[in-house]
C-alpha cells in the first residue's frame, strides 16, 4: 500500500527528464528573446549616435542613403533638427531631434526593463533545472539501490 502511494507522489525518471527538457527549452527561448532585445537596443543606440552626429555636422551636408544591394543615393540634409520617428501601427511622425532622442531613450529603457524580467525568468528556470537535476540524481541512486 505504502509502495503504491509512493509511486503516485514521486515523479518517475521519465517525468523528471521531460520537465527538465521543458525548462531547458524555456531557457533557450528566453535567451533568443534577449538576443533580439539586445539587437534592438543596439539599433536604437545607432539612431541616437546618428541624430547627434548629424546635428553636430549641421545643415546642408551631403549624405549617402543606402537603397539596398550595396547601392547608395546622395542626399542633402535639409534640417538635422527634424527627425521622422515611427510611433507604431505604421504611422511615423516628425519630431524635433530632442524629442526623438527622448522617445528613443524611453524605448531603450522599456526594453531594458523587459530584458531584466527575462533574465529573472532565466535565473528561475536555472534554479528549477538545478532542483530537477538533483532529484534526478537522487532517483537514480534510489533505483540503483533497489535493483541491487
Amino acid at each position: 500500500m505504502a509502495k503504491k502511494e509512493n509511486k503516485k507522489t514521486q515523479p518517475t525518471m521519465e517525468e523528471l527528464n521531460r520537465e527538465l527538457r521543458g525548462y531547458i527549452t524555456q531557457i533557450e527561448a528566453l535567451r533568443a528573446e534577449i538576443a533580439v532585445i539586445d539587437e534592438n537596443i543596439a539599433t536604437y543606440r545607432v539612431a541616437i549616435k546618428t541624430i547627434n552626429n548629424l546635428r553636430d555636422l549641421g545643415k546642408g551636408k551631403n549624405i549617402l542613403i543606402p537603397i539596398g544591394a550595396g547601392a547608395q543615393i546622395e542626399a542633402k540634409i535639409e534640417d538635422p533638427d527634424r527627425v521622422v520617428v515611427s510611433i507604431g501601427s505604421g504611422i511615423s511622425a516628425e519630431l524635433k531631434a530632442e524629442e526623438a532622442l527622448t522617445q528613443i531613450a524611453k524605448e531603450i529603457a522599456s526594453l531594458q526593463t523587459l530584458r531584466r524580467t527575462l533574465e529573472q525568468a532565466i535565473a528561475e528556470a536555472y534554479q528549477k533545472t538545478e532542483e530537477l537535476l538533483q532529484k534526478t540524481r537522487e532517483l537514480g541512486q534510489e533505483e540503483g539501490k533497489a535493483s541491487k
Binding site: V84, S86, I87, G88, S89, G90, I91, S92, A93, E94, L95
Partner: peptide, 26 residues
C-alpha cells in the same frame, strides 16, 4: 498599440508632419 499611437498623435503639435507606411512607401 493603436490606442497608444493615437494618444501620441493627439499630443503632437499641429505643425508636425505625419507619415503613413503603406507597403514600401511612406
Amino acid at each position: 498599440q493603436i490606442e497608444k499611437t493615437l494618444e501620441i498623435l493627439k499630443q503632437l503639435p499641429d505643425d508636425r508632419r505625419v507619415f503613413y507606411n503603406t507597403g514600401v512607401l511612406m
